[in-house]
């Protein structure tokens, strides 16, 4: 019965070629890191299950080709996303500048309710840094987004950033789910509730209180 309450979200990784979108995805889903860069030519995805606020959230993460010539095509995938990672490389000023362009494409092609967060990847390469953390913070603030500096290499902030975006998407869709909340509660038995609790990734206990 529990399966009735699953939610499934599509999250999209966007950003210039080479900023590490595929590596972020591999680290998050498989906990693996491959240092060599192979350009994604197409659109790839992987699944991951999280639990947020007692809700099992399955996320489908889409990894897109970052190369410029594919951008007209990748735009058609924005439409189905509920959450978007705007990723740049902290060692590449250029990739940071392009975030503006990515963000405006998102505004144009993604659904209005789409949630975005800004991710500055490769935070382990401090000596090559070209974009200060403060710059990232400022840009994120200007866009009203959350901001994470991540490293797929050291696994820094990977789970945090993915979980955060999933949370934001969940909150944004709260209304739809709340609409059903009444009928869900009717059906929940004591045991179901117990079963639902503490299943997975409940690292953040403080959040448990809301919803349902």
């Amino acid at each position: 019965m529990a399966k009735q309450y699953d939610v499934l979200f599509r999250l999209l990784l966007l950003g210039d070629s080479g900023v590490g979108k595929t590596c972020l995805l591999c680290r998050f889903t498989d906990n693996e890191f491959h240092p060599s860069h192979i350009s994604t030519i197409g659109v790839d995805f992987k699944m991951k299950t999280l639990e947020i606020d007692g809700i099992k959230v399955r996320i489908q993460i889409w990894d897109t080709a970052g190369q410029e010539r594919y951008q007209t095509i990748t735009k058609q995938y924005y439409r189905r996303a509920q959450g978007i990672f705007l990723v740049y490389d902290i060692t590449s000023e250029r990739s940071f500048q392009h975030i503006m362009k990515w963000a405006s494409d998102v505004d144009e092609y993604a659904p209005e309710k789409v949630q975005k967060i800004l991710v500055g990847n490769k935070s382990d390469e401090e000596q090559k840094r070209q974009v200060a953390t403060e710059q990232g913070n400022k840009l994120a603030k200007a866009y009203g987004m959350d901001f994470f500096e991540t490293s797929a290499f050291t696994n820094q902030n990977i789970t945090e950033s993915f979980t955060r975006l999933a949370e934001l998407v969940l909150q944004a869709n709260k209304k739809d789910l709340d609409l059903l909340g009444g009928s869900i509660n009717d059906e929940f038995s004591l045991a179901d509730l117990e079963e639902q609790e503490g299943l997975c990734n409940a690292g953040d206990n403080t959040r448990k209180s809301c919803w349902c």
Partner: peptide, 19 residues
């Protein structure tokens, strides 16, 4: 009101019962 089985559709997603 919408039935609870709608929850997943409200988000436009397929269901994976087998899982």
């Amino acid at each position: 009101q919408p039935m609870l089985s709608n929850k997943d559709q409200m988000l436009g997603m397929p269901q994976f019962g087998l899982r």
